[in-house]
Nucleic acid binder design. Structure first.
Length: 861
RNA sequence: GGGUGCUUAGCUCAGUGGUAGAGCGUCUCGUUUACACCGAGAAUGUCGGGGGUUCGAAACCCUCAGCGCCCA
């Protein structure tokens, strides 16, 4: 069914075309990838949004860029798979459901584990995945038939298989360590789930021991002193050297503790002596391991003091801090205090509770070998990071990674596949296996990132040897914000490279920045500057939002976004709509072969030349992930070259009815432009292109190729001259107060090639062709312009204009003269630069002559 | 404290050695049958300060100042 020539509505309304077009694409199955295809694969896995999430502006950017790449590659003939899905987002989701329960006065413990998990699934089914529906609004060309969820059967299988594989390779172990503990979520957290904030705490100096045998320690956490096992100083600190190896009395609990020497202590910090609380501080834990300092636990999982055997037991940790300091003060042991003392304190990234370092038995991933492989993959060039300036950040992370705590004391997530026997036996259960009778499964679940880290291969069916895995792994490019480089990208690299026997998960990691508000400030609810992409799409259309985001997307850098700019993109869409409508009204067509180039007008040759340059340059920019620059380039070609100049210069020939060649050229230019713009603005381009060409769909159309035969510097030069003439005459008219709409008698005379286009220029300038007596006459280059202003020329305005122009040109001339008079310049500057300056000098001289003559010709006032 | 960016027109940003650019905003004129979600024209910057390298610096080097981000 051809829709060619279907008349376009007189105004463009995105809402009317978007949803039907998306339906068309889906029902045609364009986005469904074929693993058995012989085409070269191009695959992207969508960074899975949280199941709890809705589309925010960052997703909109991320998806615009991915869709743009997917669509280009599809048009280039690749077998494209863009795989969508969601992340179960352990803590985040569990918190949401717990909040709902709390609203009913219940906790998860009231329901019990099984019922609670059922409830989460139920909630996921009801309100989860809103974001996936919103992706349709964006026009995302994802393969819905392959949609995945990190807790679906296949991925759960993959989690079991990989856990076992890693365990067998001794990359997973269980140990008692200091971990980050959230006293509200009651779970362990990995390092990246902790956010450091500058908090107002206190810094107190406490005297341990008495008289000769005393030492002053500095601490921000006085309440943990009951758990101290030692005092540490730097081994070379002259103040304390003589005390190393001796003991001091620990106040409040009256226990003797040793003074140890450790290089970890910074002699310049505080008093140079620190308390060692092995069970409640990660650094102290390390020192304690080296010096056999005992672990004294004095706090429980809720952050309540417990087991210290003092009056403070039963107090909240923060209350205890106040009470302990008060007591020490009473005992005369406080030497100095500073309050507030601003220092970095870890907070739970999900609920903001102050994180408590806690000694606890957890499962860990031994990251050293995995991180090394991940680093090597990038260092060797097997995986490229774009832009490469961000690679150091990646290395900084993978080269200094701590072991990864993967167990969580949550209920929502993949349960740890380890079963314990009645006599302390332990067995790891892989896919399809089961534990011996009487064994009990570990109650904890795995960190969300343990499963989402497998996203690049488990989504293709691993550990089965599937066709998808063979065809689409490794994926071509990972598109994501630099803010999750450490969170997710590194984990994907580690887990994939291990699971896939050394093959990293992507060939390129393309990092984009964050979307900020119009003043470049970070968007946040508290600032009230959060924008809603859905609202923008409602108001301006998906294409406008996409184009705005792409146009702001310089590699790896943040972009500011203002609503007006989205409006500007909508204006661009409208411009395209109207230009195409106008072109079709004037017979633009893609029927028949392209005319012989040599027979075309310079105007036609010029637009083909510009089209070729635009295609060539935009394509190369897209290949380099330079979305902003590619968008800018296409925007200016479409608006400036095509609409403002080509259509205007062609109006005369369209009006006179002898424009078959131009109609074909214009049809071709629009056809190619729509293809080029389609990845950025899929809806409007599809609508216009189908109307213009009667083709099936741009989604499956061929990507434009730059036809280098169309490059024509002569034609470009000629049109540049035409533009100069037209601009100059317009300026003159404007200065003279002649309305742009007013037709005035006038003529342009010139010689050579340009003479052929005098009437086209005259048409644009609304010059009336008739006999007249010029009242104004001037020259622009080789073109003489004579006008009848039907009255006197505004001499004052004209003199002012010419005088200003003269000054500008004289300055240019001077600059050129100075350069050419500079011996150093003449001796050392490259020849082409010297030639260019010489040409500039000649031009300025001619221009000065012209303006001087024009000034002289003005009647004196 | 360690690392890493940034500072260019009113705002947000391009611009890595050869006469300063874009979008938005501003001013003037204009309803010409593609488009007022438009057109035409205009104004606006000693490229953060100072020093250096160079025939030539917004760009390269040094230094100072301010802002940001990541990590601890």
């Amino acid at each position: 069914m051809s829709q060619r020539g279907k008349e376009l509505a007189s105004t463009f309304s995105p809402a009317e075309i978007e949803a039907p077009l998306y339906e068309k694409w889906i029902s045609a199955g364009y986005f469904t990838a074929d693993a058995n295809s012989t085409k070269e694969p191009f695959s992207i896995v969508l960074p899975p949004p949280n199941v709890t999430g809705i589309l925010h502006i960052g997703h909109a950017l991320d998806q615009t860029l991915q869709d743009c790449l997917a669509r280009i590659k599809r048009m280039k003939g690749y077998e494209v798979l863009w795989l969508p899905g969601m992340d179960h987002a352990g803590i985040a989701t569990q918190n949401v459901v717990e909040k709902q329960l709390a609203a009913q006065g219940m906790s998860r413990h009231d329901l019990g584990r099984e019922e609670f998990v059922k409830k989460v699934w139920q909630w996921k089914a009801e309100s989860g995945g809103a974001i996936l529906g919103q992706m349709r609004r964006m026009g995302d060309s994802v393969d819905w038939s392959r949609e995945r969820f990190t807790m679906d059967e296949g991925m759960s299988n993959s989690v079991l298989a990989l856990f076992k594989k890693m365990y067998d390779a001794e990359l997973i172990y269980r140990a008692e360590r200091i971990i980050n503990w959230c006293t509200r979520c009651l779970t362990a957290l990995s390092d990246i789930e902790v956010e450091h904030q500058d908090d107002a705490g206190e810094f107190v100096q406490v005297r341990y021991g008495d008289g000769e045998q005393s030492i002053v320690v500095a601490t921000t956490r006085a309440e943990t002193m009951m758990g101290d096992g030692a005092v540490a100083v730097h081994p070379n600190d002259p103040r304390y050297k003589h005390m190393i190896g001796t003991e001091v009395l620990l106040p409040l609990v009256n226990r003797m503790i040793p003074i140890i020497a450790d290089e970890l202590v910074d002699p310049d910090f505080g008093t140079g002596a620190v308390k060692v609380t092995a069970a409640h501080d990660p650094n102290d834990f390390e020192m304690a391991m080296r010096h056999n300092v005992p672990f004294v636990v004095i706090m429980n999982e809720h952050g309540i003091m417990e087991g210290s055997g003092t009056e403070f037991d039963g107090m909240d940790r923060f209350d205890a801090r106040v009470a302990v300091v008060a007591k020490l003060k009473e005992l005369g042991r406080i030497v100095a205090e500073k309050r507030p003392y601003i220092h970095a304190v870890g907070h739970c990234s999900r609920c903001d509770t102050t994180v408590e370092p806690r000694l606890s038995k957890q499962w860990f991933v031994k990251v050293a070998p995995l991180a090394k492989a991940s680093a090597d993959a990038v260092r060797s060039g097997a995986v490229k990071i774009e832009p490469e300036e961000l690679a150091p950040r990646y290395f900084d992370w993978v080269d200094n990674m701590h072991d990864w705590c993967i167990s969580r004391q949550l209920w929502w997530g993949h349960r740890i596949p380890v079963w314990y026997g009645p006599n302390g036996e332990m067995v790891v259960v892989g896919p399809g296996e089961s534990a011996p009778a009487g064994y009990v499964q570990d109650v904890d679940v795995l960190d969300t990132w343990f499963s989402s880290g497998q996203w690049a291969f488990s989504t293709f069916g691993w550990p089965e040897k599937t066709a998808d895995l063979a065809k689409f792994y490794p994926t071509s490019v990972l598109v994501t914000g630099y803010d999750i480089l450490f969170f997710w990208v590194v984990r994907m690299m580690m887990m994939s490279t291990f699971a896939m026997d050394g093959v990293p998960p992507f060939k390129t990691i393309m990092l984009h920045g964050l979307v900020r508000d119009q003043f470049g400030k970070k968007m946040s609810k508290s600032r009230g500057n959060v924008v809603d992409p859905l609202e923008f799409m409602d108001k301006y259309g998906a294409d406008a939002l996409r184009f705005t985001l792409a146009r702001g997307a310089n590699p790896g850098t943040d972009q500011a976004l203002a609503e007006e700019w989205v409006g500007g993109s909508r204006n661009f869409a409208t411009k395209l709509w109207n230009a195409t409508r106008f072109a079709m009204m004037n017979g633009a067509t893609v029927e028949g072969p392209m005319p012989e180039v040599s027979k075309l007008s310079a105007i036609d040759k010029w637009i083909l030349s510009r089209l070729t340059e635009t295609i060539r340059d935009a394509d190369s920019l897209f290949e380099k992930f330079e979305f902003a620059k590619a968008s800018e380039l296409i925007y200016h070609f479409a608006w400036d070259d095509l609409c403002d100049w080509y259509l205007e210069l062609s109006k005369e020939s369209f009006a006179t009815g002898s424009a078959a060649d131009s109609q074909r050229v214009l049809g071709h230019v629009l056809d190619q432009l729509m293809r080029l713009l389609h990845p950025l603005m899929p809806f409007i381009t599809e609508e216009l292109w189908v109307s213009l060409t009667g083709g099936e769909s741009l989604v499956i159309a061929k990507w434009p190729e730059a036809n280098l035969n169309y490059l024509d510097k002569m034609a470009e030069n000629l049109v540049t001259q035409m533009q100069a003439v037209i601009t100059e005459v317009r300026r003159f008219r404007n200065d003279q107060g002649v309305k742009a709409t007013a037709k005035i008698p006038g003529r342009l005379t010139t010689n050579g090639e340009l003479a052929k286009y005098a009437s086209a220029m005259g048409f644009v300038l609304k010059l009336e062709v008739k006999e007249f007596t010029p009242t104004a006459s001037f020259e622009i280059g080789s073109v003489k312009c004579e006008l009848d202003l039907s009255g006197t020329v505004d001499v004052v305005a004209e003199r002012a204009r010419l005088t200003k122009d003269l000054a500008t040109v004289q300055k240019d001339q001077q600059t050129a003269q100075v350069k050419l008079g500079n011996e150093g310049f003449m001796a050392k500057a490259p020849l082409e630069v010297v030639t260019e300056i010489k040409e500039r000098l000649v031009k300025t001289q001619a221009e000065i002559e012209r303006i001087t003559a024009a000034l002289a010709a003005l009647p004196s006032t």
